[in-house]
């Protein structure tokens, strides 16, 4: 798995994960991730070309629920537990830099 991970990449990953890390944390994380990835390089030795990836341990398919309404949650109970709410809705600070 090629060259050691850089602080720049770690900083980019932190932004992607929405974790505000301090410069010190970025430094420490860079070293720790690099050490781990180095250790994890052990699987590079394996011949995996004709091995199918396995995402789930127990093979199931076509699991459905029927299209029938069941009682949901009480809005007031849920909003009471929210960091901020008004007019029956969740309140958040201005949404910028995230337009989709």
């Amino acid at each position: 798995m090629s060259e050691r991970i850089s602080a720049e990449v770690v900083a980019k990953v932190a932004r992607l994960a929405r974790l505000d890390l301090t410069p010190e944390e970025i430094e420490r994380t860079t070293t720790q991730l690099a050490d781990m990835l180095e250790h994890f390089a052990d699987i590079d030795a394996l011949q995996l070309d004709d091995v199918a990836p396995m995402a789930q341990p127990y093979p199931l398919d076509n699991v459905f629920r029927e299209d029938v309404i069941a009682p949901g949650l009480d809005r007031d109970e849920v909003l009471a537990a929210a960091p901020a709410a008004e007019h029956g809705r969740f309140r958040v600070p201005p949404i910028i830099g995230l337009d989709l």
Binding site: V78, A82, P83, V92, P94, I95, I96, G97
Partner: peptide
Amino acid sequence: VRYGLRVDAEDTN
């Protein structure tokens, strides 16, 4: 946004 801890900031991001 919906539950748990929030530390306030100038925008959602």
